[in-house]
Amino acid sequence: MPDFRIEHITRYTYPSPVRDSANQIILYPIHDEYQEVIRQELHITGDPVVDTFIDYYGNEVGTFTYSQQHTSLTISSKLSVTTRQRPLPGNDIFPEQQWEDLKRLSQMVPYIDFLKPEYFDGIKELQAIVKSERSKEDTPSQVALRFCRYVYENFEYVKGVTTVETTMDEIWKLRAGVCQDFAHILTIMLRLVNIPARYVSGYICTNRHHTLRGEGATHAWAEAYIPDYGWLGIDPTNNCIANDTHVRLAVGRNFLDCSPVRGVYKGSSDHKLEVAVSVGYEDEAHHGSFLQEENTKAPDFKPVDDRPKNSYQQYMEMLQQQQQQQQQ
């Protein structure tokens, strides 16, 4: 029953003042029997009122606005979380039965949302891989873990080669990326064999003795739906089951449904983003330094610029948007 202290800081700085920013944060850990939030302190520049609601996927989402001119915005979340180990799925049900059960789920809410594999150019290739990796006698959970290992072994963990904008096609060609990309591919593979798969965002909490990939920033992994068990967390970046070392923030169909921080503002399109996540056990001295991660994918902060670098293009974009509004 580990207790973690997590500090997650997101900071945006702008070269010239911006205003009217509207933001959405998904930084509230999920509450359930395997995860409990003891304490959470949220500090945001300007002390705005944060309004929270539960979204379609059950995540707690906060929104706030900051209308005054500002040159930086910091969102800091300090957490104390207790996690409990969850027993793994047993293999006491016949595989065929389990696959049958999954078939039934495919036309049910919420599973239907987690079964549509998105289309990309390499889908045929991936389909072939999925087919060869899967053996008839396997249970869904065994298949899921096999796929997890496949991603772990065949994709290289390289920071900075991908961004939030990188398409699945590019990731597929690179055969490399960070946790978001690993989780993304795994969800597609699982969906191809009709296993409902969710994308999960959260934190990975270091074991005292060795480190894991995905520290220092928000982490991402996948969950596969296993009949008679529920959602099983699988971390393809570390090739392990996501259990009591993984703190879950949000689940969804993909990264966009779970992005921890996103916002829009008016002003210069330039901004610098820094994200730092540090984790410690409740009983040890807090460690961790402010990491600068230019290419971190976690926060998706898209500017809406009204003062763009090229006004002509901006004008044309506006013309186009105005014209393309469907008037039925």
Binding site: A22, T65, G263, V264, K302, V304, E317, M318, Q321
Partner: peptide, 24 residues
């Protein structure tokens, strides 16, 4: 204005026609 353009925070982030945060 179409749904997709109504709130750049929630829908199309490149929309210039909408109002960020209106969904909230």
């Amino acid at each position: 204005v179409d749904d997709e353009y109504l709130d750049p925070l929630v829908f199309n982030p490149s929309s210039i026609l909408g109002v960020a945060g209106i969904m909230g």
